[in-house]
Nucleic acid binder design. Structure first.
Lengths: 125, 125
DNA sequence: CTAACTGTACTAATCGAAATAGTACAGTTA
DNA sequence: TAACTGTACTATTTCGATTAGTACAGTTAG
């Protein structure tokens, strides 16, 4: 399970959303897997149930999970959802590229940074 | 001169900071160039002078500009400042790479996106 | 010197998004 | 029936960003 960073300034709501998206992207959570209940996760993170519920609503709106009243929330096995996540990641990354470019980084600079970064990450897995 | 986006949610303060950083990175503003006065820029952007002053304070703290009481604020010609900006841009970019990587983008995906993005940007200049 | 400009330094008030608190309703299951 | 599940509200709190207002200090032109 992922961690929350209360100091980062990033909304808890978004952190929970991204946490589950990553768990699904990494294959740790697969289609049909059940998520913790709203109240259970809120308790675990010492966070308000409303905040968790908001995250689940966002995840469901994006097709990442589906929720059933009285039963629980489950990881969706919709492939379109995964591609939507990829598209979102692409957009975010392109925005980062534009920003870095405006600040003076060249394409070669960025490619070098990517190779360094992904190489390090591989060692950690 | 740059524009402000009041809808984006990004703090106006930061937008002004980044605006001048980019103008310097692009060479439009060079060492010794005078910035608009705090009050003049606040008036132009229809923004509170305190907000502009905060931006100038941040820029000065990062060595991008220097301010002289009674005279005005000027672009610094300190090369270290430029490298500090580059370092900051690098850090932001590496964070974006990590995030994209966690969401399933491969290094090749990212390199492809960089080439597409920077190619488009060049056409616009 | 004076007036008008510069940057700087405060405190108080306002605004809005995020999160919390609390309650209630509806469906499932043992 | 009891205990769980998700869902839907409203009210409140909290915090950061911004605004508002005032004041002080240095520079420059008249």
């Amino acid at each position: 399970m992922f961690q929350l960073d209360f100091k980062s300034g990033a909304p808890i709501c978004d952190q929970i959303v991204n946490g589950f998206i990553k768990l699904k992207a990494l294959g740790i959570l697969k289609g049909g897997d059940q998520l913790p209940s709203v109240r259970a996760l809120a308790s675990k993170f010492s966070v308000n149930p409303n905040t968790v519920q908001k995250s689940y609503a966002i995840l469901e709106a994006n097709g990442i999970i589906y929720s059933v009243k009285g039963k629980g929330s489950f990881i969706s096995d919709d492939e379109n959802a995964a591609s939507a996540v990829l598209n979102s990641a692409r957009q975010d990354f392109v925005a980062a590229v534009r920003s870095a470019s405006e600040l003076g980084l060249t394409a070669d600079d960025m490619i070098k940074l990517i190779k360094e970064t992904t190489a390090k990450e591989d060692n950690n897995l």
